Simulated scan of single mutants.
Amino acid sequence: MNSYRELTITLLTGMVIGLMIGAIAYQPYIQTLTSENQELKALYQSIQESYVTLQYELNKSQAKVNYLDMLVKTAGIGENLTLDKIAFYFSKPPNGELNPNATYERGDIVWIYTELSGFCCKKLNGTWAIDVIFCLRIFDAQGQLIWQFKPLRLNATYDEKPEKLWYRAWLRPSTPGTFIITLIAYDKISLKSTATSALLTIT
Rank of each mutant, 00 (worst) to 15 (best):
R5A: 15
L7K: 11
L11Y: 14
G14K: 15
V16C: 11
A25I: 08
T32V: 07
T32M: 11
L40Y: 12
Q45H: 09
S46H: 05
Q48V: 04
Q55N: 14
K60W: 01
V65A: 08
V72F: 13
T74D: 15
A75D: 12
G76W: 10
G78R: 03
E79Q: 07
F90V: 00
F90D: 02
E97M: 03
L98C: 00
N99R: 04
N101V: 10
N101F: 03
E105D: 07
E105P: 01
G107Q: 05
I109A: 14
W111Y: 11
I112P: 04
T114Y: 00
E115F: 01
C120E: 14
C121F: 07
K123H: 08
L124A: 06
W128H: 14
A129Y: 15
D131S: 13
F134V: 06
C135V: 15
A141C: 04
Q144D: 14
Q144E: 13
L145D: 09
Q148Y: 03
Q148F: 02
F149G: 11
F149H: 13
F149C: 12
P151D: 05
L154V: 14
L154I: 15
T157C: 04
K164I: 05
L165Q: 15
W166N: 12
R172P: 06
P176G: 04
I180Y: 04
I181N: 03
I184W: 13
K188I: 01
A198E: 06
L199H: 09
L200N: 02
I202W: 03
T203V: 05
